[in-house]
Design a protein around this nucleic acid. Structure first.
Lengths: 338, 338
DNA sequence: CTGAAAGCGCTTACAG
DNA sequence: CTGAAAGCGCTTACAG
């Protein structure tokens, strides 16, 4: 099985010659809805098959102005929420005839990311990360490309957004913990400048206030595993220690649970309850069995795909903001209300 | 902040007019190494800046035959090994001026995947998944596009490959478990037709044989969480039960541990030792603390990037097969040798 | 339905 | 170093 040498791909001209039709006829045979007789189409398809011809999507894109490319911009993939969203969104867009061009942001060089996105003539941009810069979104939107922020909302931005109801989700956690009889309820924040953190925290405080109480202590994990571990050490090291911690996302909650159990030798939920947010797959693994707020990636992806496709195909560039339900998933990491 | 209307992007012609130079001069100003005087380049860059011009990467690709696009083909992203590889590889390729076009395979329609890959004129293909069809690789390679299989090796394929030394890794696990005093050592396979599973299993049996023993029992998990859980139930439900299980990858090992602890109420490693393969991030989380074989994603990605880029840029289409070291990472999920 | 022709935005010999 | 021109592989009015 030796390696085949790189050969020139056949062009529509080659196919036309073999099929004894014009080059335009070849193009039409590969364009859904174009006017070609069944006989011509047959001849073309047969010749194309014989030569192994495939229309050049890039040339088509240059002519038609439609690249059928959508940029997916992500900052990191270690929080499992993002790979899942990436997989689902990619499948949804593929099913609609689009393809995902992946951009991992370099925090140090956002200009470069914008430049690349624009050079590739993407028809839309999906920015998926709680911590991506809003400038990035603005610069893309400024050129008239539809932008959807997934899991982030920026009021002053021209970009559409898809989030769960982070405020309501946070409120539900507060209610759940207070009703569970907790008296010293702490919070570990994600990235302080992210809308997900801001809303989850605001809803949480609001929920506490509704029960006439306030947050007992607060730490910041910056949405990283190590940051959350350190925040947990600080928070739980104090005397008296909190009897419950709401962590701004699951990814950090796992680190918090590890510290509480392995380093501080405390029991969850007997000594401390832990609640997360996202409901990533690991939350249901028995090693954590994390009570958390579910934001359905299915629903978020579906909303994202439909918004971006609508904006592209209808040129309906009216900004939209989809807010999806956020429900508590009760597992074993937090004491339950009686 | 209202939405800007979609406006036509400026072309090199527009820039040329404003800068009072020829269109070719504009093109040269944006081509590294092209012969332009500093003065001309300045004029062009200034005009381009003013108009917000960015060269059309697609048009450039059509002309030059270089799309600077690399297809990354994946079957699923729920096993954390793949998102990590995807992130790292994407960053590495971006740093070399390439961009990743993501293809999630539809198991039911591989022809469609091939067709799309080829239409987008990608310069190379990275297939990352233990379970991707080798036909897919062959069809891409047949057109002269370099293909690298990451985490899979197919002897009869024209594609290059990057794997860890799965045979040696499997052998080390057997040695570790036997020396740890285990007497009924079981194996849970991944996908039976995958090279990773075949090699890990072969090396494992070889290692057992070197100690004059053989596998006690065998199950199949198909590299899925649920499949592995069921295999664990079957295996551990038998009497006598195994005192150690080598699971073909970490993703399945987590499911196996969950079943052993939560459903069967057994202790790990007192009652049963569990060893995985991959060393994904979750393996070091305290909830699992999984002893496993580390296959360095860094090293695998680096090898993949350098092979694919070499093949593209040197047209050196000699097939290569990189095999990287596989080392046991000893944690708490398995009894250790004295 | 069909073909000849113009044209998308660019790169790249070619001649000066 | 520079510009005019040909050309990449395709789509899309246009006329028949």
């Amino acid at each position: 099985m030796s390696q085949t040498a790189s050969k020139q791909s056949p062009t529509s001209e080659d196919v036309a010659r073999l099929a004894k039709v014009s080059q335009s006829a070849v193009s039409r045979a590969f364009t859904p809805g174009a006017s070609v007789s069944p006989a011509t189409r047959e001849k073309v398809l047969k010749a194309a098959e014989e030569l192994g011809y495939r229309p050049n999507a890039l040339a088509r894109a240059v002519i038609s102005g439609k690249s059928r490319l959508i940029a997916m911009v992500v900052a990191y993939l270690d929080n499992q929420f993002y790979p899942i969203v990436l997989e689902q969104l990619s499948r949804a867009l593929q099913a609609s005839g689009y393809q995902v061009l992946l951009f991992m942001t370099d925090p140090g060089d956002q200009d470069d990311t914008v430049r690349r996105i624009l050079q590739y003539q993407v028809e839309g941009v999906v920015m998926a990360s709680a911590t991506l810069s809003s400038r990035l979104a603005r610069e893309c939107a400024d050129t008239g490309i539809p932008v959807v922020m997934l899991n982030r909302y920026v009021p002053a931005s021209p970009a559409s957004s898809v989030t769960s109801d982070n405020i309501e989700g946070g409120r539900k956690v507060a209610d759940f913990l207070v009703r569970g009889g907790h008296e010293r309820i702490a919070f570990i924040a994600g990235a302080e400048d992210s809308s997900t953190n801001r809303d989850r925290e605001a809803g949480f405080y609001k929920g506490l206030a509704e029960h006439g109480t306030t947050v007992f202590a607060r730490g910041v994990g910056g949405y990283t595993f190590e940051g959350a571990a350190q925040a947990a050490r600080d928070l739980v090291g104090h005397n008296p220690r909190p009897d419950a911690i709401f962590v701004a996302n699951d990814h950090m909650a796992f680190a918090v649970m590890d510290v509480i159990r392995s380093e501080l030798k405390l029991d969850i939920p007997k000594d401390i309850s832990v609640v997360g947010y996202d409901d990533v797959p690991e939350a249901s693994w028995k090693g954590y069995d994390l009570t958390t707020v579910s934001q359905s990636s299915d629903a978020m992806v579906e909303a994202t795909a439909s918004i971006i496709i609508e904006q592209i195909e209808k040129s309906a560039v009216r900004k939209r903001a989809a807010v999806l339900p956020a429900d508590i998933v009760v597992r074993g990491s937090a004491r339950k209300p009686a």
